[in-house]
Structures are given as structure tokens and as C-alpha cells.
Amino acid sequence: MKTFLNRVLLIVLILLATFSCEPEVITNPDIDNTYIPTGILEVNFEIKHIWMPTDRIVRVGLHVAEEAQLLYQGNYIQSANVTDNMPFYSFHLPPGSYYYEAIIACICSGDSCSAGGFPGNQFAQKHTMGKFIIYDKEKTLVTPTFQ
């Protein structure tokens, strides 16, 4: 009798163990789990200039637009808050082709800026732009160069 009861108990335990391990997947309807393809643009915005000390040249702007003419119109999709304390900037973008614009300015007084190749004196700016392509889950590195 005791053996019979033990066997019944064992069967019940096995059945419970078999059927109770069905994990219920709970999904939160408020969280959109749709995967959005994204790549990263990395910009090595180092200041190099052969005619002038680099501490007298400052970063002024770094923008990304979908078309080249949109850069001229100021219709950027992203802009960085550039600083003199950081040369690397990154942008998270959906895959596709884009254009970037990088801007530097000379802060020397007198005629040092024009003598150094800037189009004007203090606060004269140089612009450069380029095309780049963003791939899903990949990094694209660009290094702006100024004439």
C-alpha cells in the first residue's frame, strides 16, 4: 500500500514538473520592440594647420544632412555641440548616404588669420564637407580636412 502511494505521488510530481515548466511570455504593449537599423558615424575632428598654432583655431560646427544642398540651407538632421576639449564626435543614424559639414574659425587678432590662410581676420571661418555611407550595426569614420 505504501509503495503504491509512493508511486502515485512520484507520477503526480513528474506530471507537475512536466507541465508546469511552460514559461508564459509576457509582452508589454507599451514597449515597441521593433528593431530600428542604426549605424554610427565617428568624426575625428582634429585641428591641424600648417601655418598657425592649433590653439588659436577653434571648432565651430559639425552637422549632418541628407543632401548636400540641405547643408547650405541649414537643414541638418543632427548637429554636434562642438568644443575645444574633445576631438571625437559620434552620430547614430539610420543606414543610408549622408553629407557632413565641419567648420573651424581662427581667433587670432590682427591680420594673423588672413596671413595664416583664413578668408579674413579674427573669427574668419573655413568650411569643409564630405559624403559618407552608414551601414546597419557598423561604424563609419570620417576625418574632416581643411584646405
Binding site: 577653434v58 565651430v60 560646427g61 555641440n81 562642438v82 568644443t83 575645444d84 576639449n85 574659425a105 581667433i107 573669427f123 571661418q125
Partner: peptide, 8 residues
């Protein structure tokens, strides 16, 4: 930072 309000 932020700096150079004439430029940035």
C-alpha cells in the same frame, strides 16, 4: 564650455 557665442 559652452564658449565662443559669436561663432557657435
Amino acid at each position: 564650455d559652452p564658449a565662443y557665442p559669436k561663432l557657435r
